[in-house]
């Protein structure tokens, strides 16, 4: 039952991405292209996606987190880290370069798997490799790296 529900929740997420136009990397890249503002080529849609998502989540999380526990049991898993370390800047900086190169972040890449042909598959395989690499590096015992594995 829990697995079916999670499938449905993922489906809502994916439908949101598709309806928002975010399954199309061209739309994402046209948002990121601020230099296209003077020529009229800038597409501000992504800001509206973020606004719509944050408005619902901001209110929804507050309502949900008043409950004693999740519907399927267990506890609420909320990130507890508050430290601004090198990783929280370096990771997103690297992520952003990749996002800017292709216009794909993980969610939209998954929506493109059925309609984007081999290009989307290439991206996803590479993404999984990159994720494995980061996790391997994060969990590697080393004095040079933070000892706490987050991922």
């Amino acid at each position: 039952m829990s697995v079916l529900v999670q499938f449905a929740i993922g489906l809502v997420f994916g439908l949101g991405l598709v309806i928002a136009g975010m399954s199309n990397p061209a739309k994402v890249l046209n948002f990121l292209d601020l230099a296209a503002i003077p020529s009229g080529g800038w597409d501000p849609s992504l800001a509206f996606v973020m606004a719509g998502a944050i408005a619902v989540t901001f209110i929804g999380f507050r309502l949900v987190l008043r409950r004693p526990q999740p519907i399927f049991g267990g506890t609420f898993h909320l990130p507890s880290a508050t430290e601004i370390d090198a990783r929280i800047v370096l990771g997103p900086a690297i992520f952003g370069v990749g996002w800017g190169l292709a216009g794909f972040c993980p969610g939209p890449a998954f929506t493109a798997l059925t309609t984007g042909g081999s290009a989307a598959a290439f991206f996803i395989v590479a993404m999984l490799l990159g994720m494995s690499g980061a996790r391997w590096l994060a969990n590697r015992p080393s004095a040079l790296l933070p000892a706490t594995p987050h991922a």
């Binding site: 990397p25 992520f95 370069v97 990749g98 190169l101 292709a102 984007g116 290439f122 990159g130 494995s132």
Partner: peptide
Amino acid sequence: VPTIETGPALLVLAGLLVGFGSVWGN
């Protein structure tokens, strides 16, 4: 239908960076 104008080599590089960076930055 998504418009993917990035070539295969750059797509793979982008995927590696997106995957690595997203996990490194949690």
